[in-house]
């Protein structure tokens, strides 16, 4: 607990200011309580008058004015430009889904193929905690058989299709400009 009277006094003053600012800004949850405090307590009344002066002074300030040519300069600049299409319009969700499907297919394909290579009946041998004898995996066979070749080919075709769509979109945008 803070027993320093100076700290307590500062906290009291800070809390009073915060509550008075809320009241002045019309954001107070307890306007009638603050009104009563202002009416009955000289300290609150003095602080309220002080803050109201600051509030009115800040309200009375004028905005800075740019040069007279400002609007003209902006309009001359935008005369050479076009409004960009809305973000949602140029981000084609089909392409996003296509990319997601491509990677998902690759991951699932590799997982399926990896698990297909595991000899589940081999059991736990030589202290291998996973029960998989990695020395018995024939990596040469993994990357040579027809299944992998077909899988890779399908991925390459999908990749080329995506690249084609992307380049087509870019070309269309360029033509539009």
């Amino acid at each position: 607990m803070d027993i320093n009277p100076l700290h307590n006094g500062m906290e009291h003053s800070d809390d009073m200011e915060l509550r008075l600012w809320e009241y002045i800004d019309g954001l107070s949850q307890e306007p009638s309580v603050i009104e009563r405090l202002i009416a009955e307590n000289a300290e609150w009344r003095a602080k309220y008058a002080e803050l109201m002066e600051v509030h009115q002074l800040v309200q009375s300030t004028a905005l800075e004015e740019p040069s007279l040519r400002f609007t003209k300069n902006v309009m001359e600049e935008i005369a050479r430009l076009q409004i960009a299409p809305a973000t949602k319009q140029y981000i084609n969700t089909k392409i996003i889904w296509g990319i997601a499907a491509f990677f998902l297919t690759v991951i699932v394909g590799f997982l399926v193929y990896g698990f297909a290579q595991v000899d589940w009946s081999a059991g736990n041998s030589n202290g291998n905690p996973m029960g998989v004898d990695f020395t018995s995996v024939d990596y040469g066979k993994m990357f040579n058989n027809t299944f992998v070749n077909l899988f890779m080919m399908a991925n390459v075709i999908l990749g080329l299709m995506l690249l084609d769509r992307f380049l087509n979109m870019k070309r269309k945008k360029m033509l539009e400009r």
């Binding site: 902006v74 600049e77 935008i78 430009l81 076009q82 409004i83 960009a84 299409p85 809305a86 973000t87 319009q89």
Partner: peptide, 11 residues
């Protein structure tokens, strides 16, 4: 800022 706002107005 005004030029940027104009370009992005569709957003």
């Amino acid at each position: 800022i005004f030029v940027k706002a104009f370009r992005s107005l569709a957003d």
